[in-house]
Design a protein around this nucleic acid. Structure first.
Lengths: 329, 329
DNA sequence: CCTGATCCTGACAACGTTGTCCATGTCTTG
DNA sequence: CAAGACATGGACAACGTTGTCAGGATCAGG
């Protein structure tokens, strides 16, 4: 910038003014400066600029896995909102590891992002308090923050599962299985709650053998399904607690001769082309991202100190067939 | 940092030393400084640090769409490599719009990222020359740079399609259709080339009605397929030029009574569970990302000035059944 | 021709770090 | 005990930008 000033024969500040398109510079001078900028291939150093202005125009997004088909559209929605507000996006995957989440969050804070959107992997976010007090707007999405009062945008997980289970009950099922993610994960616990509530609402007992929580590896899911289908009171229908469980469930069930009804949580591409087409409870992944990002920017634009809010987006049952299979007699 | 120094009763530089874990500070002093840091909730401002050191430890990734099932794993792979090198990742989607690509790239450069990984949306990257000369390592991935000699990591698109078409020919097909993306997109052009080459290698003529290039909207793809199947010389097999085309093709073909063989480009989840299971030519998306990122960091770690390289990763045919459907007589 | 208002422009400090260099104090060695 | 080596700490400038403020033209009105 110094070089540009020298070449254009003007002061440093005048160059700054031109670069920022501030008013109050003679067109003639502007032209001279522009020419110098062009000639020298000058590009403003935003790092320095942001050091001075104390706004980085960037936000950090921490989620579980950028490559997960559920989170990818969420990120994209966040990105779109960020772009509309002229902000760039740092992304990072926590891989469900609390330490990695914290590392990422703190690294983003050290870069002085204006705000954070976090899909929590840990259940204790008190480490974030100093940052939030220091002015980093923070919105949690998909799962609430642990031990911290902060904005959160969620799907109505329990409600979604209730609808799914009610759908199965409506088609005659009484022994319904639920296969969820690790019980420590908030969404997994909520979905289990929805399952219990729906069963209770229909006055159906729930055997301990009918629900299983744990890692969503194909092996574990397969084992859980096998167990549920082979016990003394085998289930006639399954509710798969998330997209990865659903995929494995579809695979396992397709290998059986006995038909088993299935409702999956989270929609997925081509679900309608499988046989039978897979009924799902769909979350609005882009909606979660968009809502969270919009809230974040509203915080940045002034409503910084209002009380934290909690937004819940509905889940939507999409009947396609696999939930309408009648119970095997 | 000033505050920390004051509270610990040491000089500014000593705090800096402690924060950076530099040698030459008494353990006693270190403890005092640590305590002050703790008490004040101090966190080093990386923006300032990086202004001084001229390394931002961050890289920028520009791709077409973060939410695309092909690019999501690619980003994740890039992220993993970046993390291993202690760098953070800026991401941005160009939405196939050259202007947006340029905006993102230049915004990243203004932030002084150490390096860039770009999936080109434009065919002219000369705007990047000054940046590259200024020291921004740049690797193009999935498609080569336009009018710029730079590192690039590609899939062997033509080879992959050749294998796919050969597979169809081996199963008796003679009239094979190809549905590709916009012809201006390098990968689309390469795949078309592979199609032509494979047909030529088998001494098969190619009718103009057998290949169609254009946007990958369901409407356009559907129309193209309809046309290919209804002309005077209807095709008996289709090669879908990318994942979105495949999805629509599966959908369209499943609605037909006449069986049509299909090979898709890009693998997708549950392809094996459709009926018939979908044969694909799979790209190694994580491999592309990993290779590009590793190359980028090798550039950053010294091999800055070596000649640009071109790496081509093989595509792999995964026969699942849909490619083995014999031609309808 | 003078005065004050208006408009441009540039000098300077500051943002929060780190690199350089020097001062001080302590230890080792002849 | 003197002198050099070494360990430790701090002052200062610099990174590249912007905010503040004051100085100098220019212009209109009296």
């Amino acid at each position: 910038m110094k070089d540009v000033a020298a070449r254009a024969g003007v002061g440093l500040k005048t160059v700054s003014r031109v670069v920022n398109e501030e008013a109050g510079v003679t067109p003639d001078t502007v032209a001279r400066v522009q020419a110098a900028i062009e000639a020298l291939g000058f590009r403003r150093n935003d790092s320095a600029r942001l050091l001075r202005t104390r706004r980085t125009s960037s936000i950090g997004l921490v989620l579980e896995d950028l490559a997960d088909p559920f989170y990818a559209p969420l990120s994209r929605a966040v990105e779109d909102v960020a772009r509309a507000h002229g902000a760039l996006l740092f992304t990072g995957s926590s891989a469900e590891d609390p330490r990695r989440e914290q590392e990422l969050v703190l690294a983003f804070c050290a870069r002085r992002v204006d705000g954070l959107i976090v899909v929590p992997a840990s259940d204790d976010h008190r480490y974030l308090s100093p940052e939030i007090e220091a002015g980093v707007a923070t919105v949690f999405v998909d799962r609430p923050a642990g031990r911290l009062d902060a904005d959160v945008v969620l799907t109505d997980n329990a409600g979604g599962v209730r609808d799914g289970v009610a759908h199965l009950i409506a088609h005659g099922h009484r022994r319904i299985g639920f296969i969820g993610d690790q019980p420590g994960i908030h969404t997994a616990a909520e979905r289990l709650r929805g399952y219990r509530e729906a069963m209770a609402a229909a006055n159906l007992p729930v055997s301990n053998a009918w629900y299983a929580m744990g890692p969503t590896t194909p092996e574990r899911v397969r084992a859980s399904i096998d167990a549920m289908l082979s016990g003394p009171e085998p289930v006639t229908a399954l509710l798969a607690g998330n997209n990865r469980v659903t995929v494995t469930a579809v695979r396992v069930l397709s290998g059986l001769t006995r038909p088993v009804a299935l409702v999956g949580f989270d929609d997925f591409e081509l679900a309608d082309l499988l046989s039978p087409p897979v009924t799902v409870v769909a979350q609005d992944a882009p909606g979660l991202g968009r809502t969270a990002a919009q809230l974040l920017f509203r915080r940045l634009d002034g409503m910084a100190s209002d009380a934290p809010t909690r937004t819940e987006l509905p889940a939507r049952l999409i009947p396609r067939g696999s939930g309408e299979i009648p119970p095997a007699s």
